[in-house]
Design a protein around this nucleic acid. Sequence first.
RNA 1: GGAGAGAUGGCAGAGUGGUCGAUCGCGAUGGUCUUGAAAACCAUUGACUGUAACAGGUCCGGGGGUUCGAAUCCCUCUCUCUCCGCCA
Length: 421
Amino acid sequence: MIPINKIRNERDRVEAGLHKKNFKEIHLINELLKIDDNRKTTQRQLDDILSRSNNFSKSIPQLIKEGKTSEAEAAKKESASLKAETQNLSDELKDIERKILDIHTQIPNVPHENVPAGKTPEDNVEVRNGGTIPNLPEKAFPHWELTKKYDIIDFDLGSKITGAGFPVYKGKGAKLQRALIQYFLDKAIDAGYLEIMPPLMVNGESAYATGQLPDKEGQMYQNQDGFYMIPTSEVPVTNIYRDQVISESELPIKMTAYSQCFRREAGSYGKDVRGLNRLHQFDKVEIVQLVKPENSYATLDQMVKHIENLLIELELPYRVLSLCGGDMSFASAHTFDLEVYSAAQKRWLEVSSASNFEDFQANRLKARYKNAEGKIELCHTLNGSALALPRIVAALLENNQTESGIRIPSVLIPYTGFEMI
RNA sequence: GGAGAGAUGGCAGAGUGGUCGAUCGCGAUGGUCUUGAAAACCAUUGACUGUAACAGGUCCGGGGGUUCGAAUCCCUCUCUCUCCGCCA
């Protein structure tokens, strides 16, 4: 949520930004500010009555001590009748606060000024690319055939055991998963991230704090205890700092986590979901940072470079996209997507998304720090996939296929223990 | 799952109906002293809301109740600890 004071003080900039994000309900800004004004006046009325009631209450012990029983009784009556007056006001206030929250949670974050304008993925801007797209022979196989040919990932078996989108990794397929996870974690740890192994289920408060609730409820699996299976480790990891005030010297906080991720992906269909392209359960290594506001964009660049370097070392052709306003997620102020080219499918696959949420997520999380002057401010939060496995595997299998098998990039060989599948 | 005990400021830990937003200690910050540091001593030190700044209001795990007044009494939920049961 955008801090309300920010909306108040920089209203033009906020509205222009929301427009860029293709947000249709700009009128909500006006409603929010109006109802917040209402909140303040109601709060003041209530506080005033409470204050008077408190004064009567406080005088009672003294009056009793002095033996002024009838005056004490009168004070009790005064206080009680004032208290009765507060009932309506405090109900009203609760109602107002509910409305504020309801409106507030519908307003997305404001994009950074460098975010390109646009509404659809076609409007995203390629900022750079790297690697070379391999020239595969005409009869090159898409990964879902390669996985069958070498018997390394079994989609049908997963369907039998659970359902579509829950593949079974076997033999070298399983080893390749572990190798990638280990490699990604090692690189993140080398870059100064603290490894976290979080719970794979979270409660509603956590899901709310990072913004999965209320709008993305349908995307998560929920169990009979009301817990949600995490769609990304961003949720539990970022929630470590929920309701925390940390000291400035602790920043930046850098955390990385491997986890399996669970997404219902209701409504997906067709070639987009074939093979490894879209799964209900998948593996991902995530990087998360909490930083001082003035450093957050330098941090975003640094995170994108980190992810990019992984793709370079894996020898995959990639491109970095700056997402346009309309294609960015609700909470993001600036997002870079990294895509790799899957040579047999002849398409780009998103393998990472790195975002700066500025103070939007921190405001909901209440993740704050105390600066040098002792003032409490919101942190900026960022996260990125480094990396999500399935599409990396898809591209590796397709791009590296040869007559004699699938070549493992050299950086992974120490982890896999084999050079070919 | 059953029985009992508990949850208070960064930590530790008092407080069982009336100036308690909360004693003391540790920690942290500033200062004195010192070449510097340690020690010692002095001072400051919870959050949210609100105001131009004061004032005011709210918060003692969450929610509700009793009362003029609740950290303190009652109900409820969550979590932690001890014992029993079950178990990778």
